[in-house]
Structure formats: structure tokens, C-alpha cells
Nucleic acid binder design. Sequence first.
DNA 1: AATTAAGTCAACCGCGGCAAA
DNA 2: ATTTGCCGCGGTTGACTTAAT
Length: 342
Amino acid sequence: MGRHSCCYKQKLRKGLWSPEEDEKLLRYITKFGHGCWSSVPKQAGLQRCGKSCRLRWINYLRPDLKRGAFSQDEENLIIELHAVLGNRWSQIAAQLPGRTDNEIKNLWNSCLKKKLRQRGIDPVTHKLLTDIETGTDDKTKPVEKSQQSYLVDTEGSSSTTTCSTNQNNNNDHLYTGNFGFQRLSIENGSRIQTGSDVGIWIPQTGTNHHHHVDMSNEAIPSAVVLPGSMFSSSLTGYRSSNLGLIELENSFSTGPMITEQQLQENNYNNSTFFGNGNVNWGLTMDDNPFTISNNSLQNHSNSSLYSEIKSETNFFGTETTNVVGMWPCNQLQPQQHAYGHI
DNA sequence: AATTAAGTCAACCGCGGCAAA
DNA sequence: ATTTGCCGCGGTTGACTTAAT
């Protein structure tokens, strides 16, 4: 029936691997590589199915595995990626060198889900479970529901701040970003807090769709802008109806910033706006979502896209890196294509 | 100290996608 | 065009460990 034959074979060992079995498998693959997994156990002298061998290698024996507990940054990244990718564990694992999809899945199911719930965040939707979220320190006070504003849940070190807001889905929730590697999703009028600083995400009416956040000059180390949004440094965002999505990493707290006028003059109606380090830049993009991996534009397989990015980058100033991904402007559910490949 | 509950983790299972036959 | 076999993925299980009573 086209099913894996090992499922039906008898006399094959199952369950935990013995050190002797590990040794056999490790020695064989180190010497010959795995090749066709179904032939590995026979060649290596193991009473296992190929599938079991593959799993053991990938999840345990592989030499490039990082062992030990997950760091706070890793946990934050997983939460962040899960918000975009959902239960696509292998894609999440691809962003965490040395970690397997299995252990990330285990971490999520046994630990991270619970942590999010404790913060009042639905681990499935990454939205608030309740309308009102209160923090633990005295500065965080409940916010009236009618204000549609929400306090940020701050936890741990100063570099770890989580923010969530409700989503009224009126296409005006413009911005998600990271405050210390934690993703947040800010909605118009939301009250946000990072550390002890509190600001308000303010939508401006009018044709230029200008938005900004007053956060006492608190730097945002990274950000994600939803389709239809733009974001620039110094916590000022711009919105244009046809703009795409960007994910930014590292600091972009200073540097040149594209203006609304520049935007219009350059006809970036179908463009994406980037900020990174000391540079913000835009580029024209097609309808395909794509990923630039390893924080390196040079690694991108689409050379025309790369040169386009490069030229736009030069136009605005300096080389940029750390672009993680973006989605086309017409993508209503960017998470469906996050970290996809052309 | 014994028992139970909760948490963690490795491994299994079945499915879908894909390519070769 | 259909069948077959393999790979990789994600959900789930169950053994084991740790914490709580």
C-alpha cells in the first residue's frame, strides 16, 4: 500500500536504544554516511528498522546537536517563531542550530505552553486569553476594556518583555515586533510597557497613515511588520496599503529613515520597508514570500532578488543583514508562509 | 517511607509528499 | 496513469524522573 515496510516487519527491536546499538549506528554513519535509511540497519548490524535508525541519529547521535537546557533566548525565539509558524516544528528547529524539532516540540508541549498561559496568552493564537491583562508590579494597572488598550506582561530580565494586545481585526493592527526578542503585537491605542516605561501606540488619522509609539525613547531591538504596514526606526511607523512585511533583527534604533515623501516619490506601493542597524531601506517585491537565511543576503538563492535588494540597500546607505523574512503585501495570513522559500 | 501526580523526554505511529519504477 | 517505497513531519504514547502529599 505504499506504506513503510518496516512497520510490518517482525523481530525488529523497538524502544529505547542501548549504548551498544548507539555505538553501532554512530560508527556506521560516521564511516559510510546514512545513504538510504532502510538499508542502514542491515549494514550496521542492527535489529532495527531504518526509520528508527534515522530518528535515533537525527535526535540523539548527530554530532552537531546542542545538548542541555534551552536558553532564555532560545525559548523566546521559539515562542516568537511559533506565533508565526504554528506547529511547524521542523521549520522552527531550522532557526535554532543544534536543536531538533522533537525537543522543541517537547519543550513547547511541556513547558512553553504553560508559561504562555500563565502570562494570559493563548498558546495557539498568541493572543490574550482575557480582555484584561495585569502585570505583577504596581505600575501595571488594569485597563478599561473600552479603551482597547493592554498592558504588557513583563517578566524576567529587562531584555525580556512580552506584549500582547487584543485584535479587533479591522486591518488597523499595524505592528508586531520584538522587545528584547519577544514578539509583540500592538494594536492602535494599545498601552504598551517595556521595563518601567509605558507608552501608547497611537494611530494617526489622515491620508499618510502615520503611527507612532511614545515609549520614552526605549529602543526596540527587532520587529516584525505585518503586511500592509511599514515600520521604521525610532519607533515611528508608516502605513501604506500595499506594503509588505519585514522581519528585523538586532538594533535599528538609529540611522536614516525613509520618509512618507520618499516612499511616494519612489512609488513603493508594492514595496517592503526595512530597517536594520543603521539603515532602512525598501525594495520592490513580487508575490512570493521568501526567506533570507543565515542572516545573510548573500546566501539567498534568488540572485535577481538579491541584486535588487542590494541596489536598494545601497540606495539608502549601507549594507544590511539580518533580514529574516517577509511576506507579500497581499498576504492576509503571513504566518501561512513565514520562512517559506522561493 | 510510600504513594500519587505532574513533568519530561525518547521513541513510535501513521500520514502526506515525492520520485522512481 | 498507477503503484511502490522512502523520507520527513507532527501527533501521540509510554517509560522514566521528580515533586508533592
